[in-house]
């Protein structure tokens, strides 16, 4: 295989979910790629049937030993997207950790036994940096977290990246790309964060206005696609340049906020429903530097602000404070003044 060219056989994990299904379909559409195999422990939902028409979907539980499956498939590239960010919908925190950590270990073991493998792309997250008041304002790829993240997801991500580092040492001939994604937004993607923004009354942390960053799913898919068909070794932050604060995001989406004191939210993490990852993010915020990504990939994702606006446009239901309503209220004030002015004149 030409090292800089497209791989002939690509294996995508996590194919029953949004990112996995879409990237598998995009790669399958590339004429240079002969075969795309999608793995997942669950069957893809019915509405992905058309999308995954060109993909060989197999039900495989990565948390069990997959043996020499990748070698038998003669996989040349593996895209590991079976990483879950929240215990909701994945059967609790224990199952989530099982899938993230044990699943990655088994997959990397299988990768190591695949002599044809040339490229490995792993989904990571900016959660790797944690979030604390002692952190710099902007994280570059080589910033080390000041504190080990308190949240389960952040710790899983650190474990996953640790195993990839080990894999890189053992298989120096494989180009490994680790993509640290910011939270996804887009017109169609469904994520925990988006469910949060979709509530009419949105809880926030009192006295905190975290800086947030998002990556548009279309841009995330483009970066993933380039990582599969081109050589981009290394670890990259993948986020929309720029920043949006939580209050700004909520105002743009016309939500009403419900500020809650931090200790109460901490207590709520024990009851479930909200994770420490989320609390820390919503207290301290997280911003990453995307210069390395732009330089390496020659591609600039749309800005956080633009990406978020695209999300709002498609999720207008539930909006309380629309710009129109605010306008009419402000016009009313202007009207009252105007009336007083004309009375004074007359």
């Amino acid at each position: 295989m030409d090292i800089t060219g497209a791989p002939r056989v690509v294996v995508v994990t996590g194919v029953s979910r949004f990112l996995g299904a879409h990237i598998a379909a995009q790669i399958a559409a590339d004429p240079r790629v002969e075969r795309v195999v999608g793995l997942d422990r669950a069957n893809p939902p019915d509405d992905y049937e058309d999308l995954l028409a060109g993909v060989d979907v197999r039900r495989v539980d990565l948390t069990r030993n997959t043996g020499n499956m990748l070698a038998k498939l003669r996989a040349e590239a593996v895209v590991h997207l079976a990483v879950v960010s929240s215990p909701q919908g994945s059967g609790g925190r224990a199952a989530m950790k099982e899938q993230n950590v044990i699943g990655t270990m088994h997959l990397l073991a299988a990768c190591q036994q695949a002599p044809t493998l040339k490229r490995l792309v792993v989904r990571s997250s900016t959660a790797a940096y944690g979030a604390s008041f002692r952190d710099p304002a902007v994280f570059t790829e080589d910033t080390e977290a000041r504190d080990v993240p308190r949240g389960g997801y952040g710790r899983d991500i650190l474990d996953i990246e640790g195993y990839v580092r080990g894999f890189r040492r053992r298989r120096a001939d494989v180009t490994a790309t680790v993509l640290r994604f910011a939270p996804f937004v887009g017109p169609t993607a469904e994520t925990v964060l988006l469910r949060y923004f979709a509530q009419p009354l949105v809880p926030t942390v009192l006295g905190r206005d975290p800086r947030l960053q998002f990556i548009h799913v279309d841009d995330a898919l483009e970066i993933l696609r380039r990582s599969v068909v081109e050589d981009h070794p290394g670890t990259f932050n993948v986020a929309g340049p720029g920043v949006i604060t939580l209050s700004q995001a909520l105002r743009r989406s016309g939500r009403v906020t419900l500020p809650i004191v931090e200790p109460l939210l901490q207590a709520a993490t024990r009851l479930g429903g909200v994770s420490l990852d989320q609390v820390d993010l919503f207290v301290h915020g997280r911003v990453v530097d995307t210069q390395k990504l732009t330089q390496e990939f020659g591609f600039t994702p749309r800005s956080t602000s633009v990406a978020f606006d695209d999300f709002i446009k498609s999720h207008e239901a539930g909006t309380v404070l629309t710009p129109e309503r605010i306008d009419s209220f402000l016009d009313m004030i202007k009207g009252v003044r105007g009336a007083r002015g004309s009375r004074g004149q007359g």
Binding site: A137, V138, D209, R211, G242, V243, I244, T245, S247, Q248, A249, L250, R251, R252, G285, V287, L321, P323, I326, D327, L330, I333, K334, R337, G341, G344
Partner: peptide
């Protein structure tokens, strides 16, 4: 005097509008 106050009110209202709809810029440091 009235013009000056009208201008001030208009400017204040447009400020409030930008704030309430989130149409402003914040740099990487916040």
């Amino acid at each position: 005097v009235r013009d000056e106050w009208d201008a001030r009110v208009a400017s204040a209202l447009s400020f409030v509008r930008r704030r309430l709809t989130g149409q402003y810029e914040v740099d990487d440091f916040g």
